[in-house]
Design a protein around this nucleic acid. Structure first.
Lengths: 329, 329
DNA sequence: CCTTGACAAGTAACCGGTTTCACAGCAAGG
DNA sequence: CCTTGCTGTGAAACCGGTTACTTGTCAAGG
């Protein structure tokens, strides 16, 4: 069972060349004569040689692995993103190693460090941790990408989606429908996205229109649990922090015999795949996961190749009007 | 910027001991005198020493990383599972490296190999590949866990959920409600779960009850697209391969002005988080992701510690009756 | 004709740990 | 007093590659 591993030296010996040559053949970097290349490849095939990834990593100093730290893998928002990055990374020959901080601020530093220890860089999705933690991680000297969070002080590269503009447009959409009393269902308070979305709501200074914030939390359960508090406000439209909260809220409202959008209009944010399939289909803001994923990986790949960090990519998007919003009765 | 890395030798020198001793102190395996231990730890702290994970891996022969191959990360079923395994593995000090085969049979072998190259073992979630591929992967000599697929010929360990019994119960539930013409909406044909669920449907030999299979595919889009074919059968109840298909189908039926469960009852399978929040809430079969995740990791950990492979854990579960099923009109 | 340079290939140091083995010191046993 | 047996420690081999440096060959240039 425990067959001796075939190493580069076996191949070298069998092909009658030096280990350096074998290494070169597989690295495809330096030039090796056609004849030797053929002999090496032949010997390798005969012996069933496979490069030892860990040894390569140690010797070359790079692992071809990148860490990804997610606050909550249970949120469809993230796995669409991850899935896209996975593919982009794959075609560059990189693997992704994933950790889930479970929305725990305290867990982020240790997880980040642990990931960095086994990888060439770290991608942090919507990190909530303080910037001193990010700084600490940056001290490791490896590339760090931050997604969905604006960091000014440190020279970290980041990919952002403009949350403000579409959120404002979405709010205006409800106002144009005739709604006057809006409720904004808040998400995780420490998240940058939440700050931006709430900022957009506050910026909505239309005479006669009021915006009431309600603390929720960003999950479906949170949304459902907010139904009563929402009803107590007497509002006619609710803009939720994200789709999950919106979906939860709609379920909660239904349970109270309130129809959406008949009695109350509800909107989400993110346009997760489910948003299209709820009834009513959810009015929301589309989050271009493919673009974000691709942009994130491309920037990460750039950093790995030595690009100077600090670049910031800002993507834009817009609302998607579906069936969960309608004029008030 | 490029500060010289602090190695075990620096620590050894600074503490006035040999590198072996430093290694032992950190390994906590062999005994080192209290005095030396203190001196080493002190020196390590002063110098800011961190063990080099890759070097440890090469020297010790184990990476403390386990690969996970998922057919489709966009399915909530899988990421709930992954999330649970992530946590279980984390507390044992293991990291998970994830790859998504994108439902592509052809991609599984290469991805599996690649993951195995950087890890101590491989967990395959609902693999669709032929058993010769699994065999090939097993030849690497590293532990392989198979989840949601029964493999008899190879001595692989596996964790399974009994799909047959609850699927049958679910079907009986619709029959007891009074339905006579059932449709079964099929998922990915090569998946073991699909086979089991369909087997349960076929086993339903109740006089006067017919079961019509319809090819769908397991995604929400597939479900929606099946609406017309479903309606053409004139059935009164549809049992979908999984929740995604069911949710898609409900959306599709709604678009045709058909109400669920008023006109047609619909059931799912998996009990993904959304199942509770759709309207109507979905009647389905609960899949205990926490248990599956925990069992999978525990068995994997066992294999990593030298347990003999071949064990099989079969978990059981049952239907959850919600609002998407009702007596026929 | 001799030098210079480009290039192919080999030698050996190195990446940063782990672990086998040898050795020293000391207590117990004969 | 001399073995025998542990235990704690160090020296050095080793894990399996990469790569800086060296050597040798051969063609072009002076």
């Amino acid at each position: 069972m425990s067959t001796e591993r075939v190493t580069i030296r076996h191949v070298a010996h069998s092909a009658g060349v030096s280990v350096a040559t074998v290494s070169r053949v597989f690295a495809q970097s330096s030039s090796v004569s056609e004849e030797l290349t053929a002999r090496v490849l032949d010997a390798a095939r005969r012996l069933g040689y496979t490069p030892h990834a860990v040894a390569q990593s140690l010797a070359s100093g790079r692992t071809r692995v990148v860490g990804v730290l997610v606050p909550n893998l249970a949120n469809p928002y993230f796995y669409a993103l991850i899935k896209n990055m996975l593919h982009e990374a794959d075609r560059d020959g990189y693997r992704l190693i994933v950790a889930d901080s479970d929305e725990s601020l305290a867990a982020e530093p240790a997880l980040g460090m642990s990931l960095l220890g086994r990888s060439d860089g770290l991608i942090m999705l919507s990190p909530r941790c303080g910037s001193e933690v990010l700084k600490e991680l940056g001290l490791q000297g490896k590339p760090i990408m931050v997604v969905n969070r604006q960091i000014d002080e440190l020279g970290l590269s980041s990919v952002l989606l403009d949350n403000f503009t579409p959120m404002r447009q979405l709010a205006m959409h409800t106002v144009e429908l005739g709604h006057r009393h809006l409720v904004y269902l808040q998400g995780p308070v420490r998240s940058w996205q939440e700050k931006e979305r709430w900022r957009a709501m506050r910026s909505l200074r239309v005479p006669g229109v009021t915006v009431t914030p309600i603390r929720a939390g960003g999950t479906m359960e949170n949304g459902r649990a907010s139904a009563e508090r929402v009803l107590a406000t007497g509002c006619t439209a609710v803009l939720a922090h994200n789709d999950l909260t919106a979906i939860g809220l709609i379920a909660g409202l239904n349970e109270h015999g309130v129809s959406v959008p008949g009695d109350i209009s509800v909107t989400g944010f993110d346009d997760i795949p489910f948003a299209r399939f709820t009834s009513p289909a959810l009015t929301t803001v589309h989050s271009p996961q493919e673009d974000i994923g691709r942009a994130t990986w491309r920037m990460t790949a750039g950093l790995l190749h030595g690009d100077r960090p600090g670049a910031r990519t800002m993507l834009t998007t817009q609302p998607v009007i579906r069936a969960s919003t309608a004029p008030p009765k």
